[in-house]
Design a binder for these strands. Structure first.
Ligand SMILES: [Mn+2]
Ligand SMILES: [Mn+2]
Ligand SMILES: [Zn+2]
Ligand SMILES: [Zn+2]
Lengths: 136, 136
DNA sequence: GCAGGCTATGCAACCGGATTGCATTTCTAC
DNA sequence: GTAGAAATGCAATCCGGTTGCATAGCCTGC
């Protein structure tokens, strides 16, 4: 059994052919991936199916959504233990204004960015600038 | 001369009646404000005018935009020195899942959230959870 | 004060991503 | 194998956000 298949089953997702292909594709990506990117790479699959696949993956804790201020939402495979309807992706993201890619940064946000009195479930952090590769 | 009028002139914005009203309204708010909120509170003003006012304010450094993952973008008056097309709002935001309000937090973000090699222009940080007031 | 020119406003239309409804196909459990 | 549940495909819709254009308003130079 493929590792992608196994992963989906563990997360309570029926491992259809399309879903496995999409998961394997997402796992290969260095940058976060949007729906339009999937559309280009899975012309066989219907746009809506791709959309719903991402949504299911997100709900079940396979990927997390990144709102980077571009036209569309991006998604990246979770690297912490995320479960159904429960992400804990306390890490930052970086959107490069040169290559327009959005990356997950593994540094976890440990310092208290929020004053006492607030209880934090989740954090969305996107930094904007130039990535090391584009910085020449 | 009103302080709102003065503020607009300093930022290179013609201080029309509507703009001053909107700025004064925004300055009163504790939470970030979206277009639909303005629509409700300025029924006299056209939706598009309100939209363009926010856009102008943002471009000229009067307010900053906050993408908090809700349906619409929110705006809050800048409290650092922001200039035309140049914001430096390195501060966090907090969106409460009970009252659904989004607040600016004055804590400035230490830049250590991003590894060496990246150059950071701007940071968007939104924490999600429960605000002190809703925590009983 | 007045005319000309630039800016702001109002209205209508459009756009693109996100989302939903429903019929059909595919898969899983028995 | 069959019945029921889930996934898929296709069409339609929603809804912020955005733009084009005509009109009204403001500021300037004369
Ligand atoms: Mn990430
Ligand atoms: Mn803010
Ligand atoms: Zn780059
Ligand atoms: Zn609250």
């Amino acid at each position: 059994m493929k590792s992608s298949e196994n992963m989906l089953i563990q997360k309570g997702i029926r491992p259809t052919a399309m879903r496995m292909l999409i998961l394997e594709y997402l796992e290969k990506q260095l940058a976060a991936t949007g729906l339009s990117d999937l559309e280009r790479n899975f012309e066989r699959g219907d746009r809506i199916t791709l959309y719903r696949t991402l949504k299911t993956f997100e709900e079940k804790g396979v990927v997390h959504k990144i709102i980077d201020g571009s036209e569309e939402a991006k998604y990246a495979v979770c690297f912490e233990d995320c479960y159904e309807h429960h992400h804990h992706d306390m890490h930052a993201h970086f959107k490069c204004k040169i290559c327009h890619e959005t990356f997950c940064l593994r540094n976890s946000i440990r310092q208290s960015v929020v004053p006492a009195g607030f209880s934090v479930d989740e954090i969305s952090l996107v930094a904007y600038g130039v990535c090391p590769r584009c910085k020449k």
